[in-house]
Structures are given as C-alpha cells and as structure tokens.
C-alpha cells in the first residue's frame, strides 16, 4: 500500500517529465495540439473566376462553409450581432479567391451623404502562420494580422470608386471650385490616406493590425474585391496572388493558415469595431481540382438522420452491454 509521501514523490517525478517535455516543445515554438476548427478549403479551379460577377457559376465548385458570427463585444465601440456568413474559396492561376455571402435586407453602398454608412466585409489572416494563432480581434502586437476589407461604398461611383459630389447630389449647383487641381485642398488624398486613394481600382483594401486601434493601410494595395447585392444577399469576392513579395499573409498549395470573417451592416450605422465577427477557422489551399457537385438535397437529409440514429442505437447497445457486465460483476 502506497503512502501519501511516496505517491507525492511519484507525482513530482511525473510532473518533472511533463514539464521537460513541455519546455522542449515550447522552445521549438510547437504546440502539442492540432487545430480542429472547421476548414475552408480552396481547391484549384479549372475555370477563370470573374471578379465582376460574384454570383458566377464557377463558385458552385467551391465547397462552402457556414460560419457563425457574433457581435464584437471586447472593446468599444461594440456592435454587430448574431449572424452567419457562408464562405467559399478557390484558387486559379496563382491567385486565391474567397467569396463571402450573407443576408442583408438593405443595400447600403454609399457614404457620400451625411449619416450614411456602408455595408462592408473583411477577411483576416495571421501575417505569419505559426503554432500560436493571434487573437481573432485584430491580432496581437507580436503577432499581427493581415486584413482585407471590402466596402460597398468603394465601388458605387463611376470607375468603381466612391460617389463623387455630383453623383450623390445630381442637382447640386456650385459656381466653381477655385482649388480644383490643388492637392492640398484634398488633404486625406494628398497625405496618402488609403480610404480615399484617387487611383482606387479595387473596392478592397490591404490592411495590417496588431491589436485594437492599430489598423493601418499596408504599403502595397494588392487585393481585388467586388461585391454584388441581390435580393437581400451580398456576395463579395476577394482575390490576391497566393504568394506576394512582402510581409503579408502567404498562401501555398498544400499549406494551411487561419481565417476569420467580419461583416458590417451600414443600415445599422455599423463601422469600426461595431461589427459581427467570427472566430479563427482554418483555410487550406488544396492542389486538388474543384469539381463541385454532391451534397444532400432536401430529400436525402433523412439519410443523415437515419445514420445518426443508427450510431446512437449502436452505442446504446454497447452501453447496455456495459451495464449488463457491471451487474454481473456486481
């Protein structure tokens, strides 16, 4: 019979081994765990993916995942709420494409009048994919995140830009603008503020952050983005080269990284931290060809239920066995 002290000694020895093992793993920046989150798989598309048609048929070939969203409640200004976003991903010709799809009863695509806020969406990746995933809220100072943000307002004007004054107010009458060509009278644009870049060719921005309040425009604007609202639904496509020559999130066939989603509802005056967010999920870029198809139609949902019932019944049987055994031994 063991005494307490001998068991204590054994515990100490076990703990010492555990600690040494853990320290070795930690020093090599490893975590003894494998992520089990839902995975968004980007397979190789055989067809080109049109950026100007987020509803294109090619997307049917990408496997969707439905991601729960909840309101951002960690820092002010809080906002957003419960919702879902359906995401699909594909890659084609060295470019990654991600499509987000979510319900929004109203199309809010202008910020060109007072009191207007735009619908928007974003995807977020850790800049460096490692064992430790940054906080899903805007990353950590030592583990920054790369954010691609699309805003509806950034594609409503002519040349897929923001609405200018004449477009927002067709009946406006202004005699003249004396400083029309002097950049200092457009200070945001002149200082290189990305929200108003005059050469905007994409409705999506490439951003970096390392915790709240640190969101900063990346030096290279390389993310394409385009959305379309139809019948209460936004579909937005993001696209970027898998590999880029700077310190942003990188993707490669066969590699995985993390991805999180956010959605803003302009009708609800959501902007900034007022948004609905997801946790980090896994994004895998697969070399397989996206063939699409499959899945269960309404009628075959029953199959799922039946399989489930069979499993439960089987386990119940095993359980009964256990009970039976127990009784016998008792």
């Amino acid at each position: 019979m063991e005494t307490l002290s001998s068991s204590k000694r054994l515990t100490v020895i076990i703990m010492a081994f555990v600690f040494v093992g853990a320290a070795a793993l930690t020093l090599f920046d490893l975590r003894l765990a494998s992520s089990q989150t839902v995975t968004l798989v980007a397979k190789r598309s055989e067809n080109a993916i049109p950026l100007d048609d987020p509803s294109a048929d090619v997307w049917d070939k990408g496997a969707p995942i439905q991601v729960p969203l909840s309101g951002q409640n960690t820092v002010p200004p809080r906002g957003g709420g419960e919702g879902t976003v359906t995401a699909r991903a594909l890659h084609y010709d060295g470019k990654l494409y991600i499509r987000m799809e979510w319900s929004d009863a109203t199309k809010d695509d202008s910020t060109s009048m007072q009191n207007e806020f735009t619908d928007a969406a974003a995807v977020q990746f850790p800049v460096e994919h490692g064992e430790s995933v940054p906080a899903f809220c805007m990353g950590n100072p030592d583990a920054p995140v790369n954010i691609w943000q699309w805003k509806a307002a950034w594609q409503t004007g002519t040349d897929a830009s923001v609405l200018d004054v004449q477009e927002a107010y067709p009946n406006i009458a202004v005699d003249f603008y004396p400083f029309e060509d002097e950049p200092e009278f457009y200070p945001a644009a002149a200082s290189g503020n990305i929200v108003v870049r005059a050469d905007r060719t994409s409705a999506a921005d490439n951003l970096l952050a390392g915790s709240f309040g640190t969101l900063t425009a990346a030096e290279d604007q390389m993310v394409a983005g385009m959305g379309a609202w139809d019948d209460g639904k936004w579909r937005v496509v993001f696209s970027r080269d898998l590999q880029v020559g700077a310190e942003y999130a990188q993707f490669a066939e066969g590699d995985s990284t993390n991805v999180a989603f956010a959605v803003w509802n302009g009708a609800n005056a959501e902007r900034d931290g007022m948004k609905s967010v997801s946790q980090f999920l896994t994004l895998e870029v697969s070399p397989e060809i996206a063939t699409g198809g499959g899945g269960l139609s309404g009628g075959t949902i029953g199959l799922f239920v039946v399989v489930g019932l069979v499993v439960v019944a089987g386990l119940a049987t095993v359980g009964s066995y256990l009970l039976y055994t127990r009784r016998q031994t008792a």
Binding site: Q36, T37, V38, T39, V41, D60, K61, G62, A63, P64, I65, Q66, P68, T84, T86, A290, T291, G292, G293, G294, G295, L296, I301, F304, G308
Partner: peptide, 27 residues
C-alpha cells in the same frame, strides 16, 4: 461535433455544398 464533422465528411466525399442544418444544430 455534428457541425464540425459534417464539414469533414462533405470534404472527404468531395461535396461542394452546405451540410444540412449546420448552423441550426450549432444554435
């Protein structure tokens, strides 16, 4: 686990569709 495993099942079956009831079951 239904939510999580249904996605893995679909992936292994190479289905490009949403598994039924995923979000509902999660709720």
């Amino acid at each position: 686990q239904y939510y999580s495993l249904s996605y893995i099942t679909y992936r292994l079956l190479d289905y490009a569709a949403l598994p039924p009831l995923g979000i509902d079951v999660l709720r």
